[in-house]
Design a protein around this nucleic acid. Structure first.
Lengths: 129, 129
DNA sequence: CAGTATCCTGACAGATACTG
DNA sequence: CAGTATCTGTCAGGATACTG
């Protein structure tokens, strides 16, 4: 069983990843921590979140221009983030067409963990001096 | 300039990633948060850290058997983690040869951020109900 | 405008055999 | 034992042209 969703710091550390899976494939598919790391290890995933944290709402071409990626890759990443529940896609049937991307509540909360990672990198730098 | 290494929560949020780079390539190369996410988005990176947190020291074949990966991939990941300063590789010139992997202080501190991500996944799950 | 479709390159990863 | 070498397949991502 994957216990990544059930961390009780007092009792046992290491609750953030399952060690009891028979094969690692199950871990990767079921462990939420691993899935987040895989998603944000992909190109543009984090920069998209950051753009939306700053601008709140953005249209496709604005994201595209800002990140200077190919439309295929940007689309792919937007779909990933949407499927994972981090961003919301709203279509307005105007001419020309308008699509606006924004963060879900869950997506906006990513700010916290990214910041914590940043703080961690700062601390681990100090320790190594 | 990348300001990911200089987070001051009181003044400005979003310090965890640089928005002022002209192109995203510089961000990926220079931003520490992004680099960590890319590294641990790769297969076996997190499971290796977890194994070493539990067992303290492990030999190559034990890691290999435990994670059931191909030797090429496991070696590649061990080198990545070593280059980033998370693990230490010690060679003993015995016959048969012995190599032991263990965490550096910085590697052991990864426990904290993985746990924080796990706690975050738990909280964001509750919110969405 | 917001994407798809197509083609292409390179990195990631598995399987297996081999070596110091 | 601790890898390396080799071959293979899959997928991420770029460039560009096209479409509803």
């Amino acid at each position: 069983m994957c216990n990544a969703g059930n961390p009780h710091k007092e009792n046992n550390k290491l609750d953030w990843h399952c060690i009891h899976h028979d094969n690692i494939k199950d871990c990767i598919e079921e462990c939420k921590v691993q899935r987040i790391l895989i998603l944000f290890g992909k190109k543009y995933a984090m920069p998209i979140i950051r753009l939306l944290l700053i601008h709140k709402k953005m249209r496709f071409n604005h994201i595209l221009e800002n990140l200077k990626g190919s439309p295929k890759t940007i689309t792919s990443r937007l779909r990933d983030l949407e499927k994972s529940g981090f961003i919301k896609r709203e279509v307005y049937n105007e001419i020309p067409m308008r699509v606006e991307y924004s963060l879900t509540e869950m997506g906006a909360s990513l700010d916290d963990i990214f910041e914590q990672i940043a703080i961690w990198t700062l601390n681990s730098q100090e320790e190594s001096h």
